[in-house]
């Protein structure tokens, strides 16, 4: 991660004449201990404890007994519905992340202006969708879109984009797009606030210095704002990608993954496997928690590989750049 390099600069002096690492870094370990312990107990251990389920055919009741080895993983990899849900999640992410980040940054830049009157009010407005639980936001949006799609389609029909009312969430051609737009709307506020917090870490002096050097607005943005946001920016991008790939609640509330899998993403696929019943089916078939866990891990491994590959690529590119310079 880009952040690692920054820290190296602030590393304490070499350790040759100092005592052993535990004593030398005593307070560092103390500061990390509660974090490390609680995370191990409530995040990492449960992940590994549930890893065992992937090797069983198990309906979630009592303890798993039907050991089937790695067959769940093989079945996941061979399931076309898993891969189509993967494509939908990827599509959701590829569209949502860049659009949302650009909008959030633009909004943050406008609202960061200390001379802007009522900026608190505007911030509250744009943050509002993010504070409500997704279940509620989703229900309201769904009510509006499905109940009154005829009203909403009128402007589209007026400009000739469509000749009949669109059933946004019920039409397989539009459903995923509708979900993406709502997704952008829903969490934009979060990224806006992150960017606002990030903008505040950039010292005013840097802007002043740039201005004295004769840098214009755009130059100041490129040479001061962008580098200043890099630390937080990397984190925001990373979180936005992970969050989008793992989108669940919003899809569940809006479409349940339908119509006919048109908006099924990986996490709704996993849910449907874990609790039986596909989109809208009664779920009289047995839930398969083992299979769902395997799908879940399989997906995690894909993400891990993709991320590591990305980091490696960045590293290689940097090294080349450095070599050239």
């Amino acid at each position: 991660m880009a952040t690692a390099q920054l820290t190296r600069v602030s590393a304490p002096t070499p350790a040759t004449q100092r005592p052993g690492p535990i004593r030398r870094h005593g307070w560092t370990y103390v500061y990390l201990a509660p974090f490390a312990i609680l995370t191990s107990v409530f995040v990492i251990y449960p992940i590994f404890a549930s890893l065992g389920y992937t090797l069983y055919e198990w309906d979630g009741l009592g303890e798993p007994t039907d050991f089937i080895g790695l067959r769940n993983f093989a079945d996941v990899a061979a399931d076309e519905f898993f891969w189509s849900s993967f494509r939908h999640a990827a599509m959701y992410t590829l569209v949502l992340v860049p659009v949302q980040l650009v909008l959030a940054l633009a909004l943050a830049l406008v609202l960061n202006n200390p001379k802007l009157r009522g900026s608190t009010f505007y911030r509250a407005i744009y943050f509002l969708p993010a504070v409500t639980s997704v279940a509620i936001v989703g229900i309201v949006l769904k009510l509006m879109l499905s109940n009154f799609s005829d009203v909403l389609s009128r402007p589209l029909m007026a400009v000739g984009l469509t000749d009949q009312p669109l059933d946004f969430l019920g039409n397989p051609d539009t459903a995923l797009w509708a979900v993406i737009v709502i997704g952008i709307w829903n969490t934009l506020g979060y990224n806006m606030v992150y960017f606002l917090a990030g903008l505040q870490t950039i010292p005013k002096e840097q802007y002043e210095a740039a201005q004295i050097d004769g840098a214009g607005k755009i130059a100041r943005f490129v040479h001061v704002t962008v580098p200043g946001l890099r630390g937080v920016g990397v984190v925001i991008v990373f979180l936005a990608i992970i969050g989008s790939l793992q989108v669940f609640d919003l899809v569940m509330v809006l479409t349940g993954g339908g119509p006919y899998f048109a908006t099924e993403v990986v996490n709704t696929y996993i849910y449907h496997q874990a609790f039986g019943g596909s989109i809208g089916s009664g779920g009289s078939a047995e839930p398969n928690v083992g299979y769902a866990s395997a799908a879940s891990f399989f997906f995690g491994i894909i993400l891990l590989v993709l991320t590591l590959g990305q980091m490696w690529a960045i590293k290689v590119m940097r090294a080349r750049k450095a070599a050239r310079a």
Partner: peptide
Amino acid sequence: KKITPDFDAITTGLYTGQ
């Protein structure tokens, strides 16, 4: 075990034309 797509899903897929 569960079938995907099951009858419920198939009826929806037929209805949408998928």
